[in-house]
Simulated scan of single mutants.
Amino acid sequence: MRVTIQQKLQKLVGVVLLAGCSLSSWAQEKAFHPGQLWPDNKGVHINAHGGGMLYQKGTYYWYGEHKIEGGAGNLAMVGVHCYSSKDLYNWKDEGIALTVSADSTNDIAKGCILERPKVVYNKKTKKYVMWFHLELRRQGYKAARAGVATADRVAGPYTFVRSYRPNPGKVPVYPVGTADSDKVNCDHPKTKAEGYFCRDLPGGQMARDMNVFVDDDGKAYHIFSAEENATLDIAELTDDYTGHTGKFTRVYAGHSTEAPAIFKRNGIYYMIGSGTTGWNPNPARWFSAPSIWGPWTYHGNPCKGEGAQITFGGQSTYVLPVAGKKDAYIFMADKWTPKNAIDGRYLWLPIEFKGDDIEIHWKDTWSLDDFKN
C-alpha cells in the first residue's frame, strides 16, 4: 500500500508524542532546510505551492495552491490553502482560504487550474484581495485568465468575484525615449510576440504565471505572463485592487519569461523570473528598473554555484522582505513534482546584494541570523 507524505509525517508525530514530547516542543524549528519536508503545526507537509506572502501586525500569512496525491494533483480539487507564522520557520494551518466550487459551470469549478495565488490588503476598502492565474475546467491552458477574490478576514473565507483577460482594447505605455519603431504596430506586427498581442487586443491579454506588488504609494500592480508566455506584462490595478486601469507595459518582450517575483529596494525595482520549460527547472533570470514602468534591464542568472543553471531545482514564486531587518529578502521557489504534486518542496534562500546587483547561493540550512542586520 502506498504511504502518503501526510501519513509519514503523522507517524513521526506519533513517535515523538509517545516519547513524552509535546507537539509544540517538537515543532519549534529555528532554521530553514530548502528542499526538505516542511511540517506544519499538525505534522503535515505544508500544502501551499506557487505561493505568496502577506505580512500584517507581526504575522506572516502564506497562501498557495493546495495539491492532492497523484498526477491529477495539479488540478484545483480543493482550493487555496493559508498558513500563518510569527517567525517564518513554524507554520500554523489556517485552513482553505478560497474553496473551489462544486458547480461545474462556475469559473473556479472543482477541477479547474488555479495557480500562483497572491493576496494583498487594501487599506481604503479594508478588504483582502486575492489574485490568481485561472484556467477553466477541462480546457487545458486555453483560457489564460486572471481571477480575483476578496475577503473581510485575512485567512478568509474568500469570495470569488470574477475572471477575465486584462486590458481589452488597451495599448501599452513605453519608457521615455522609446523609438516609434520599437512600439507595437498591429497593422504590421514585427515579431511573433507582437502578433499574439495584436490577436488578443480586442478581448484582453493572456494572463498566466503571475504576481501582485503594492508600491510605497499604495498603488498595486499585477505582473503576468502574456502573449503565449512570450512577454511579461506589468499592469496597474484599480484603487480597490479588484480590476485593471488599462495602463500597462510589456517587459522583455518575446523572450518567454514566467514565474515573476517582484520587489523594491533603495528605490530600485527588481524582478526575478524563469524561462519556460514546463515543470522542468531552468536558469533563473533577473531584471531591474528605476521605475515600475521601466526601462527594465535584463541581468542574467542571479543564482551562483553548483546547481545554478537549474535554479537549484526550483522555480521562483515570490520574494519576501523580512520585517524588521534591513536588506533581508528571501527568494521563494517551488521544486515541482508533477507526477505526485503534493510532494512539491519549497526552496527558500537569502538574496545577497553586491551593490545594486543580486546573487543567490545554495544553503543546506540557514536562518534569519544569516542576514547581517
Score class of each variant (00 low, 15 high):
Glu65Ile: 02
Tyr89Arg: 02
Gly70Lys: 10
Asn106Met: 05
Lys127Arg: 15
Lys118Asn: 09
Leu136Asp: 07
Tyr89Lys: 04
Ile113Lys: 09
Leu75Ile: 01
Trp131Pro: 01
Thr125Ala: 14
Tyr55Lys: 08
Ala109Cys: 13
His133Asn: 12
Ala109Gly: 15
Val44Trp: 01
His133Leu: 02
Ile108Ser: 07
Ile46His: 14
Lys127Val: 01
Thr59Ser: 07
Leu134Ser: 12
Thr99Leu: 05
Pro117Glu: 11
Gly70Arg: 14
Lys92Tyr: 05
Leu54His: 06
Tyr83Glu: 10
Glu94Thr: 11
Ala143Trp: 01
Lys57Gly: 01
Trp131Val: 04
Arg116Leu: 03
Arg138Gly: 03
Gln56Cys: 07
Val80Ser: 07
Gly73Pro: 12
Val78Met: 05
Asn47Lys: 01
Tyr83Cys: 10
Ile68Tyr: 09
Leu88Glu: 04
Trp131Thr: 04
Leu54Tyr: 06
Ser104Arg: 13
Lys127Ile: 03
Gly79Glu: 07
Thr125Glu: 08
Asn47Leu: 02
Ser84Cys: 09
Asn74Tyr: 14
Ile96Trp: 13
Thr105Phe: 09
Lys118Arg: 14
His49Arg: 09
Tyr63Ser: 01
Asn74Ser: 08
Val80Asn: 07
Gly71Ala: 15
Thr99Met: 10
Gly73Arg: 12
Arg137Met: 10
Val129Gly: 09
Glu135Met: 01
Leu114Gly: 12
Asn74Arg: 07
Gly51Ser: 12
Tyr121Ala: 02
His66Met: 00
Glu94Phe: 03
Pro39Met: 06
Ala97Gly: 10
Asn41Val: 00
Arg145Ser: 00
Gly140Met: 01
Glu135Val: 00
Met77Pro: 00
Gln139Glu: 15
Ala149Glu: 08
Glu94Arg: 08
Glu65Trp: 05
Gln56Val: 00
Cys112Ser: 08
Val80Lys: 05
Leu54Val: 09
Gly79Ile: 02
Val100Tyr: 05
Arg116Gly: 05
Leu75Cys: 09
Ala76Ser: 15
Val100Ser: 11
Tyr83Pro: 08
Trp131Glu: 04
Val44Tyr: 00
Asn74Met: 04
Gly147Phe: 04
Glu94Leu: 07
Glu65Ser: 03
Thr150Glu: 15
His49Met: 02
Gly147Glu: 01
Gly73Cys: 12
Val44Asn: 10
Ala48Lys: 13
Leu136Pro: 03
Gly64Arg: 11
Lys110Thr: 14
Val80Asp: 06
Asn47Ala: 06
Val119Gln: 13
Ala149Asn: 12
Cys112Phe: 03
Gly64Gln: 10
Ser85Pro: 14
